[in-house]
Nucleic acid binder design. Structure first.
Lengths: 232, 232, 232, 232
DNA sequence: CATGAATGAGCCTTCATTCAT
DNA sequence: CATGAATGAAGGCTCATTCAT
């Protein structure tokens, strides 16, 4: 892992720029009244704790300190309340993938798959920390609500994936990534390792005494060695 | 990764022995009446499709072609029905970890972390294929039913983990695994990669045209390179 | 309460004869198989404990150590099981009242309302002791099952009551009972005191350390003084 | 039972005062919405008619003209609905017994067990008339719901009974009540006669053409003669 | 806007009863 | 005769949703 100091500086700049970019793609909640905010927070807590189906609007109302009717003044149905929590999250998760500039960093002059990973993992970790309970809900409910996936499916399959595939293949051609794996396998292993880290870090064992930076670096190092090119 | 032919033969023998061992740890369902089997199957289907809470016993009864009361003759509550599907699965998942012989393979003369991984991944993949729908349910419901985790928690944390940790550290000392990672990180990366593969393969994209053996080998190869020692 | 010795002897003979008469009116249970008997006993216990409606045939079957179906082989319905316990009891309770000889004792030459009371109270107390749990059930269920009362209503109102009324009026005319009360009031007070005693003795406070004979005598003494004639 | 006119006047005054006292101990139902009142009335009717266990909430709802859910908005469970009817009644029945002033009347200068009885019987008769259906339910259900008795048991056994016993014994010592009966027997006979009267009057034969005042007087007269002292 | 009483469909569960073995 | 699995109607209760205030 020897890299000249100068490049390092540039890399770091690039990483910062990408993280900025990702952060910018997330706009904050639209304005809500105080009551509405309390409803949403109560809903997040209770959906996360017992699951959407097992949560009752009356319990949410009680925890939010509002009347049951008030919930339905803001959200036509219980499902709409769920979606108001979870859809913007899906949107934000997908958002960076459709940004014009997102993959530009990968087209920069040096081999920087690593920088890219670092930026993405850090940003998603911040993201997870910030939206943890809602992410849990998303994770739980996405299998049961195709409406949450549907709008993004084509976008990802036809828009994002091919672009990633092409980028990976360029790295492989350049010798930065091993060429004996199909690009899909490289993507799978990358995503699995990164998401796996985030899942273990934030969902499975959030209370383990993580040294976050070190663990992030290890994950990247592991990935880079596992995928190091060329190997014929 | 050049290995002499002779060792290879022995490795394969060892792998087959371990797979055998794992398979043996799974005993089959106890005998049920025809009706009971139909109830369980219907329940698996519907729990998997809409989640435990959102599934109704009347729907299960209809799909099973029995009267609703019949369900409750066999299972005192809806929850007991869920557990009858899911607890044996948890048991079977944990079973190999407590087998005396399970880690013995790792104490054999040559560096065989790889063989161990291959045996385990293959076996778990077979397992996933066989119990797919029930595994989906398990995955969905385990966060909401501490009763499912509780009996195994101490066993894993105090019994299994230390043993794995020790084994990994021995590999590190022998130079078979990189020594610059804490053993916990090695374990995390291994498990994440393996489980991540199985999750993508069976749950996330079961319909992708997988070349299972090739992909298993790639996952192992990726892992072994990512974790190759020493690097002290 | 001074009475000549000779009369006393005769009174006692009379009382014994009446008690004999009353006892004879009670024939024992018809023959049952062992299982049937166990069912009936279990039913008595459970009906008494939780009431007919709240008792379940499955609980009865369990307690009786038979299959649920077995109950319905002997009794077409749950209600029939109840009635098999309770109707013969009503019949036995009413039986003495329709005996030709029952009131004959009252037509004997001396004032012997008292002897009559003593015989009846003693006999009913024995009866209560013997059939206590079933009596509890009867008491609880009779308001909800007109079928239990119906067959005896006319008999009592038209057959028994007038006869008692006539007898009481004869005692009043003879000066043995006070004449300033209508006969119905005398009957009410008599029955109330006697039944009240039996109720308190056996149902309300069965565990109080009763001196049964003394208390019986007190009840009779109280009644005789309260109703002593003439006073008009 | 000749008593001077003057004393009579005072006695009547005293009786009226006691009746007033008893009536005061009964506070009225707390305010309810119209719907709630209809639910309670329907419940009283149906519980009385078929017993608590055999009554169904859906039937109650129909008779009350409300949705079934409405019942459970006001009463968490069916049992709570029963208790809302029956517990205040038990409380009111016991209330006079714990009034400081209740037994004071018995300590007045003349022999007035009789006045006391008259006041109590009249008051309880009014009470019975007013709460008849609920009393029927109470009578039916009290054996099956220890929770109804429990709170009052110690109060009565340790607080009320000894006081009554002492009073009765004073009357016996003074020659107003017969001294050849244990005080417990005097109490039992008194209570049995009074309660027996009320039971026959209101529950068993409510449709008999009662001359209530006359019958009350007869009961008292009967009691006073049956218990007249001293008989050493 | 907010409320919360009211709704009634639907849930899990119990139960008396039937019937093939 | 006895069994006990199976039934399905009915029970108590919960819940998302509506609407008059």
């Amino acid at each position: 892992m020897d890299r000249p100091e100068k490049d390092d500086a540039e890399r770091r700049a690039q990483e910062r720029w990408l993280e900025e970019l990702l952060r910018a793609a997330e706009d904050d909640r639209p304005k809500m009244t105080d009551k509405q905010a309390r409803i949403v927070n109560a809903a997040i807590e209770i959906f996360a704790e017992k699951g959407y189906s097992a949560a009752s609007t009356s319990e949410i109302a009680t925890k939010a300190g509002v009347a049951e009717g008030t919930i339905f003044r803001h959200y036509k149905t219980k499902k709409e309340l769920l979606f108001s929590i979870v859809s913007p999250l899906v949107a934000k998760l997908v958002a960076p993938l459709v940004l014009k500039d997102f993959f530009k960093v990968l087209e920069a002059p040096y081999p920087n798959y690593e920088s890219f990973l670092r930026a993405v993992i850090r940003n998603r970790s911040d993201f997870a920390r910030k939206h943890l309970p809602a992410l849990r809900i998303l994770l739980q409910e996405i299998p049961f609500h195709p409406e949450l996936r549907e709008p993004y499916k084509d976008l990802v399959v036809e828009g994002v994936l091919p672009r990633i595939r092409r980028t990976v293949e360029r790295f492989q051609a350049e010798g930065a990534l091993r060429a004996d794996f199909p690009s899909d396998a490289v993507i799978r292993l990358t995503v699995t390792s990164a998401v796996g880290f985030l899942f273990v870090r934030h969902i499975l064992l959030p209370d383990y005494p993580w040294d976050e930076d070190a663990e992030t670096e290890r994950t990247i190092d592991f990935l880079m060695h596992g995928l190091a090119g060329p190997r014929e």
